[in-house]
Each structure stands twice: as C-alpha cells, then as structure tokens.
Design a protein around this nucleic acid. Structure first.
Lengths: 201, 201
DNA sequence: GCCCCAAGTAGACGCACGTATACATGAGTC
DNA sequence: GACTCATGTATACGTGCGTCTACTTGGGGC
C-alpha cells in the first residue's frame, strides 16, 4: 500500500491537490467495489487515502459526488469486439482479466452493479454502459451474421448477465471459476462464446 | 398490499404472533433483495410489515438475526436437475421463474448475492448453497457423461455465474433479458444449456 | 524574508440508525 | 367479569454517520 517506493524522480512532496484527489478516488473505487457504497463510510475512504474526512467533502462535494465521480465509467471496451467472430469471447475475457489486474478491486462495472439496487442513477449509468459497449455492438455484429434481431438481443443480454455474474462471483462471493489468469480468461472466453453461438432450443 | 381481501375462513384477528412474524420476514425478504441489507433500515421493514420497530427486535433479536432468519435458504432446487440432459436448462429456468413469481422480489439467492460483499457469512451461506444445489450435482452429472473433472467444474461454475448475473440483471439493473415469463424462461434455459454443453475452445 | 492563499486538520453538529425500556391493550381462562 | 400474560406501542438512549466551521500549516511569488 506504500505509494512511492522511492526511486521516482518526483520529490516526496506533500500538499499536492491532484495527488490527494486521485488518492481519494482510488480508495473509494476499491472500497465501493469491495464492500458496496452503503457499507463504506466516508471516514474509511479518507483513512485509506491517508487524509481527513473533511477533504473528501472539499474535493467531491459530498459522498454522493464522490460516487458519481468514481462510477462514471469512461471505460471503453467495445473495441475488443472487432476482429474474427470466433475470438470475441477470448478478447472480452482478456480485456476483463487485465482490467481486474490493473485496477484491483476497483472495477467500475462492479461498483455500478453493487450500487444499482440502492442508487437508481447507478442502474441508469450501468444500463447505458452495457448498451453502448456490449449489448449494442454485439447485436449489430450478430445481425450482420444473419441472426434475427430478437435472438441477437437475447444472446447479447445473456453475455451481459454472465459478465455481471462473473464479476460478482469472482470479487464478492469469491471462489467461483478457476484459479489463475489464463484459466480464468479461458473460462470466461469459452462461456461468452458459447452464449453467443448457441442455437436456440 | 392488503393482506386479507376477505372471503378467507380465518377471522381478521389482530394480535397474531405467527402472522406478525411472517409479515416481518416477508417484508425483510423483499426489501433486502430489492435495496440490499445496509440500505434497508429496520424502521422501513417494520413499516412495510405494518408494525413497530420494537417488534422486529422482539421477534428476531436484532437486525442481524432477522437477516440470518431470512437468508437461511431452505431452498432445494437440485431436484430439477434430474431427468434428461437436454432439458436441464429449461427445468432450471422454469424453477427460477416460478420462484420469482411466487416470492416477488424476495428471492433468497438475490438477498445473499447482494449481501455477500459486506457480510462474510452471507457469502459463506451462498457458497454452501451453490455447491450443494447446483455446482455439486451438475459436476456429478457432467462427470457421469464423460466430461473431465476440471471442465465439468468450469461449466458448472459458469452456470452459477450466469444465474447470479441473471437474477441481478432482472431484479436490480432491470431490463436485461426478454419480457414475459415464457420468453424469460426460454432465455435462461437456452443460455444455461449452452453453458453446459459447449465444447471447450 | 514576509505574505498569503491553497492544502490540510480538528472538532463539533444534527440526524438517522439499531436497540432497550417502560407502558398500553386485548384475547383467552376461571 | 376480573385477571393476566402475550402482543403491540411509544419513546428515549447511545452511536456512528455525513457534513460544516474554524483553525493551522506550508510553499511559492514579490
């Protein structure tokens, strides 16, 4: 949890507004994703960021403002859908796993999924994200391959549901799915591909 | 929300401990599932049950005790796995959809999924439930059909993830998946079947 | 070297929460 | 018909929450 292991060119200056703001946001992301919004007091976020609760209010206005700032997923993942059809699942999986790796527990999608029940605007942001980045593009692709509209939407929605379930499973319930990044990616990838390709019963 | 529309043989007696206890539990199930444990005050549960907060303490000891009473899923669904392999997905789907219908928003699985992040014992109960009712039986079945152990576990875990994602999607994020009970059941059923049957890439 | 404002702290306020306690009340018993 | 205890209410208490206000501190510009 040490921030600067030394060796960095920048001096260990304190009183840096930008760094403080980032520290608060990072702490909030991790804690909101891991414990949920309601179960995360502002004081805990402040402690994790190494500052005082008052600063959270100063920089983000309120806990609500902090949530909005942190849950605004600038996340763009639809690019991974480009390329050959057979590899869509694998590319989505690789994207998810690498995101989990770099962001720790602070996956914005997880924050939104967990908060969606008690915060309607979180559900709205999540719906928009899914439509823009997964459902929409997937439906377009499937239609281009001759899949009827209704079935294309169902398959894309199934992928959404699986992705949400997988992120909840892995990071909240925990030991669901295989261990290890490669095995995990293979698990997600082949499952997504199966949901995309299966024939309607 | 009226409880006795009249016509029932029992007189409209008040001061019925059993009925009160049930009313509290039902209200708690619905609210915990819809808004999550942390975001549901005891006072709200009491109001929904038509009684006073003190009675919640009297009947369940504490909010914690209420949660434990309500999240203890006596739910048994593994029986639907019996029967021909091709219909497993459809039978699981029918079971889920009918459960949602009769329990409203109070699906115990949803309660557990939502609480798992902030309440470790909820995660534990959920893991036990999944292992006992879905993962375990599914692995046994798949193995009996010649699927290797590791792949059987992965497929069963994928079903778990999808089911959790589907319940979150439908009841929290909302408009994911098709409308109507039959279409919904077909969506879940064919997705589950696809996850069970797909060849590993 | 002093000034001054941004950066940060300390502490308190009001409120809602979970819970405990004291009181009211009605249905069954004799 | 009075008794009585389970059932239910009213209300108060302590705590932890989000937020606000007043104060302190440090670093860059002249």
């Amino acid at each position: 949890m040490t921030e600067e292991p030394a060796g960095a060119p920048a001096p260990p200056r304190t009183r840096d507004a930008g760094r403080t703001r980032t520290a608060i946001a990072d702490a909030a992301r991790a804690l909101f994703a891991e414990h949920g919004y309601e179960a995360t007091p502002v004081r805990t976020v402040a402690a994790a960021a190494g500052i005082t609760p008052g600063l959270v209010t100063r920089y983000f206005g309120s806990k609500d403002g902090l949530f909005l700032a942190v849950s605004d997923v600038g996340l763009r993942v639809s690019a991974v859908l480009d390329g050959p059809h057979e590899g869509i699942g694998a590319r989505m999986a690789a994207s998810m796993v690498s995101r989990w790796r770099q962001e720790g527990a602070g996956d914005p999608v997880l924050i939104l999924v967990r908060a969606a029940g008690s915060r309607p605007e979180a559900a709205h942001v999540l719906r928009d994200f899914l439509e823009r980045e997964t459902t929409g593009p997937l439906v377009t692709r499937l239609r281009a391959e001759g899949v009827p509209e209704a079935e294309a939407r169902d398959r894309a929605s199934a992928v959404d549901a699986f992705v949400m379930g997988a992120v909840m499973s892995r990071r909240v319930v925990d030991p669901v799915g295989p261990d290890g990044d490669e095995a995990l990616a293979a698990w997600i990838g082949s499952s997504v591909q199966a949901l995309l390709d299966h024939a309607r019963s």
